[in-house]
Design a protein around this nucleic acid. Structure first.
Length: 557
RNA sequence: UGACCCAUGGUGUAACGGUAGCACACCGGAUUUUGGUUCCGUUUGUCAAGGUUCGAAUCCUUGUGGGUCAACCA
């Protein structure tokens, strides 16, 4: 009975495949997956899906996951990226069973290549890239054999050894698998296995002059590690035939490849090329600019690893093209931070309030909850006095109906403090409001309110003399359109106000000793995270995400 | 003028021949000293046409639409 309940449980197609394999006793029920990044850039949220998928799937079946760096191209890869990637994977909460490098297998790969040459399954080709492209045909037209296809194994062997010995210039020749130039799958038309590069490799130094191509390294690395399920994105599906062919020719451990659809996130770009362009052209401040979809940027912006993994899980796994709404990511981080973040008061655009009937020089320390979702979080004390700051947005001289905040003659509750009424305004020479003249109701103090007054609005506030200056960075979507990649030039749709800096925001005293990475909810404003640029003299906060704002919707109508 | 993959509300994803469900978004309501949170509810969907079947989102056929494939990148 529990059996049928299990089989009815909803699982994605990959989990279903693995479950069948495990139940059939494939590889003794052992599951080993891998996450195989190329160390030529930083991880982004798309990688987080792959990481969560590979580690999650394996863990579900008592298996493990290797982190393997696909470092077959010495021209593009660097140790700096290796370190950053390891850091990001661990930060997300996953511990690789082993940390490995495709370059660890260069020797074995070379031996296997020699074996294929000996059996006439690979040959050295001196054709130019143009000649090779011409021989290769097109997707709708079969290719034709080139002039080097029937060189003898002995000659090919000698040539290949010379390639590795450094006897040829880069680009002079390549080693190709000998499969079928007329195959309907382009990848089977004698794909290149090795090219010559006289470059310094970040791990193997100057030992090699030939470097394996992806197709001749990836599947073999999977096989060497005895990866049971090699999970990759859809664009590699046509490579699967080659993946299987090499493994079969070599008679080695039969890893199997499965493909899923990567996801697109609305209002952002995810391709490494475009991300790099944003950085190098200065559209953002760097790879960890909080507007970027990189893991390092999300971390700096204040996303928790839990929220990212939750998101990566919620979006699901299929083979369909898809566009995930940014609002889902926002939901995930709000849900997490609502439970965990301490509430603090901050005023982004200060407006001075003078409480006329509050004695000059008097001050009170009022209690306010640190987190209404978590009573264990306790309380803090907020200083109250005659001069306060409130948010400019929380006052309107001529308010529309349903505006619950302050206006001339109107009343509002200062959260955790008193109810005040606005009696008048001070103006500068241009007529701009510079301060509000208010009276407070002493008997309306929070927790002991006997005033009988019931204002509809509640706003946050700060005591002027106790408040401190802070810089607050407000982020919005980086692009103005859902799918920037569909534009002829995605840089044309950059959002001009994706970053708005408030250099003179004010914060409450309890925020004085904040450190980089601290997360708060600034009451009524959103979730914020202390930036590494922060100093004791000048704290800097990043807005992670706003609170849901029902009023903004109403006001827009 | 090829091969391969895909098609379920606005978005994403379930339903393995038997009640089309869940989440986000949206809209409405209740509660609220955060216009937050929480709770309740409404609306909205099987690409099309045939076929198989007592019964089809599911199987078959043909269309239609979308995606991928021709780097000495991964």
């Amino acid at each position: 009975m529990s059996d049928s309940a299990d089989s009815r449980e909803s699982v994605n197609f990959l989990e279903a495949i693995i479950r069948e394999d495990v139940e059939a006793g494939l590889h003794g029920g052992r599951v080993l997956t891998r996450f195989p990044p190329e160390p030529n850039g930083y991880l982004h949220i798309g990688h987080a899906k792959s990481i969560a998928l590979n580690f999650g799937l394996a863990a579900r079946f008592g298996g493990k996951t290797n982190l393997r760096f696909d470092d077959t191209n010495p021209a593009k890869e660097e140790q700096e990226y290796v370190d950053a990637i390891i850091h990001d994977v661990r930060w997300l909460g996953f511990e690789p069973a082993r940390i490995l490098f495709t370059s660890d297998y260069f020797e074995q790969l070379y031996e296997w290549a020699v074996a294929l040459i000996r059996s006439g399954k690979a040959y050295v080709d001196f054709s130019t890239p143009e000649e090779m492209a011409a021989q290769k045909g097109t997707p709708t037209q079969a290719g034709i054999p080139g002039p080097y296809r029937d060189t003898t194994p002995e000659e090919n062997l000698a040539l290949f050894h010379k390639m590795q010995a450094g006897a040829f210039r880069e680009g002079e020749c390549v080693l190709r698998a000998r499969i079928d130039m007329a195959h309907p799958n382009m990848h089977m038309r004698d794909p290149i296995m090795y090219r010559i590069k006289h470059a310094h490799h970040h791990r193997t130094g100057d030992r090699w002059h030939v470097y394996p191509m992806y197709d001749w390294a990836h599947g073999q690395s999977d096989s060497i590690e005895e990866i049971t399920h090699s999970i990759c994105t859809l664009e590699f599906a046509p490579h699967r035939a080659l993946y299987d062919w090499f493994i079969e020719q070599l008679g080695i451990f039969p890893s199997r490849q499965y493909e899923f659809a990567r996801f697109n996130l609305s209002y952002t770009v995810m391709s490494k090329r475009k991300l790099l362009q944003l950085v190098t052209e200065g559209h953002v401040r760097g790879w960890d600019d909080p507007r970027m979809p990189t893991i390092s940027a999300l971390r700096r912006r204040g996303f928790t690893p839990e929220s990212i993994v939750d998101f990566a899980t919620r979006i699901g796994v299929t083979k369909r093209e898809n566009m995930i709404e940014l609002s889902l990511l926002e939901y995930c981080i709000r849900e997490d931070l609502n439970r965990r973040a301490l509430r603090r008061f901050a005023v982004l655009d200060p407006l001075r309030v003078i409480i006329s009937n509050y004695e000059e020089g008097r001050e009170e320390w009022l209690e306010s909850e640190n987190n209404p979702e978590d009573t264990d979080a306790g309380h803090r004390l907020l200083p109250f006095g005659r001069e306060l700051f409130i948010e400019q947005e929380d006052f309107m001289e001529d308010p529309p109906s349903k505006y619950f905040r302050l206006s001339p003659g109107g009343m509002v509750r200062l959260k955790s403090a008193y109810i005040i009424r606005c009696d008048g305004v001070d103006r500068d020479a241009e007529g701009k409001v510079t301060a509000l003249r208010c009276t407070y109701f002493p008997e309306s103090r929070s927790g002991q309110d006997t005033s009988g007054l019931k204002p509809k609005g509640v706003i946050h506030w700060l005591s002027v003399p106790h408040s401190r200056v802070a810089e607050v960075r407000l982020y919005d979507r980086l692009f103005t359109v859902e799918d920037p990649s569909a534009e002829s030039d995605f840089r044309q749709v950059l959002h001009p106000e994706s970053l708005v800096i408030k250099p003179d925001a004010r914060i409450e005293p309890a925020l004085a000793d904040t450190r980089a990475g601290d997360k708060f909810q600034f009451t009524r404003l959103g979730y914020f995270c202390t930036d590494p640029d922060s100093t004791l003299e000048k704290p800097v906060f990043n807005r992670t995400v706003t609170l849901k704002d029902t009023w903004a919707k109403v006001a827009d109508r």
